[in-house]
């Protein structure tokens, strides 16, 4: 099936996967240590929170909206869950945290969705307000300091590995158990987006708003669902990250929204709506992880990370724009709107 093969090779996800492999090999040539099981596990572990948050904003982006409040949601929910559980004298594991954080995250994000949906405001502007509000809330109302007082059940979480490996450089490491959460979330989101009527609604709404409304979809409802999923997954990411790092941080993930959006966009998701896939998001996150980790293996200071991610984004914009121009001929004169939905 040469036709099938050509279509497969033309897919964004396949190209991206190829690039990830090539970059990994190039880094491996300069530093052998990069091509080890320990590094792969390390990259996967680092990708966990980003993958969860990336999966979360996927439905929002499919609708043609951009959210950045999810990092604030992650910080607030994990910190609130910890404060509540700590005051109750909770000594259990991650379960209690998830039980509190997830619904709370969904509720906060739902508020963003409701406000933008009901008043027809761009989610981006509203979420910027919430971003500032949530971090301000954490620092002022809860705790301006990091909290290291983990309950007993959570102390061992950081080295809870599914597969253990001994690495000459890193020492004992392995595949962290939180990967299971990501897999679960990815499959769940995939099933929803691919096989449910509401999931297809995101694509239809992003493709042609009029068709969606005529078919019986409700924009506000879809936006609320997307934001609730977004908030819940961000909350999960927050809790897992804090448990792994062994402290709860009022400014958790501040600034990480740029990395998440960069990863998701590089993964082939369009912020004008209607395009994006679970595989693409996961690959985008892995790509950004490989780049940022790889830099360390190449001996570059970690302070250069953001610069490199910024460069990647700009290069990506230029390449996709040129590709679109080559494929679409001269007719496409878009880029004339703010890009916050239609």
């Amino acid at each position: 099936m040469p036709n099938f093969a050509r279509r497969l090779l033309g897919r964004h996800e396949v190209i991206l996967f190829g690039i990830v492999i090539v970059i990994s090999i190039v880094i491996g040539v300069f530093n052998r240590a990069f091509l080890s099981l320990a590094t792969i596990f390390e990259i996967l572990r680092g990708a966990i929170p980003f993958a969860l948050m990336g999966l979360g904003i996927l439905p929002v982006l499919l609708l043609g909206e951009v959210d950045i409040s999810f990092v604030g949601v992650a910080a607030t929910t994990s910190l609130v869950a910890h404060t509540l559980l700590h005051d109750m004298g909770y000594a259990g594991g991650i379960g209690g945290y998830i039980l509190i954080a997830l619904p709370l995250g969904a509720a906060i994000a739902l508020m963003v969705g409701l406000i933008s949906g009901v008043f027809r405001l761009p989610v981006f502007a509203v979420s910027l307000g919430f971003w500032l509000m949530l971090y301000g809330f954490n620092l002022f109302f809860i705790s301006p300091e990091m909290r290291f007082d983990l309950p007993e059940g959570l102390v061992g979480f950081y080295n809870h590995f599914l597969i253990k490996v001994q690495d000459p450089i890193v020492g004992e490491t392995g595949l962290h158990v939180a990967v299971v959460y990501v897999l679960f979330a990815a499959v769940a989101i995939w099933v929803v987006l691919r096989h449910t009527v509401i999931g297809r609604g995101f694509y239809i709404m992003g493709g042609n708003r009029e068709v969606a409304v005529r078919t019986g979809y409700n924009l506000v409802k879809l936006l609320c669902v997307a934001m609730a999923v977004n908030g819940a997954l961000a909350a999960l990411a927050g809790v897992l990250q804090c448990a792994y790092k062994r402290f709860f941080d009022p400014i958790l993930f501040r600034g990480a929204e740029l990395y998440v959006i960069a990863a998701v966009v590089i993964g082939g998701t369009s912020i004008t709506g209607g395009r994006g896939s679970v595989i693409g998001v996961l690959l985008g996150v892995i790509f950004v992880q490989v780049i940022t980790r790889g830099l360390i293996y190449l001996g570059v200071e970690p302070t250069w990370q953001q610069f490199v991610v910024g460069c990647m984004l700009v290069i990506f914009f230029i390449l996709t724009s040129l590709r679109a121009r080559l494929l679409g001929g001269l007719s496409g004169r878009s880029g004339l709107t703010r890009g916050e939905g239609k």
């Binding site: 740029l258 910024g310 914009f317 724009s321 496409g332 878009s334 703010r338």
Partner: peptide, 13 residues
């Protein structure tokens, strides 16, 4: 023709 939100977010990064 990059959407302004995305382009300036990239620039900002």
């Amino acid at each position: 023709d990059v959407p302004p939100i995305l382009a300036t977010l990239g620039g900002m990064t």
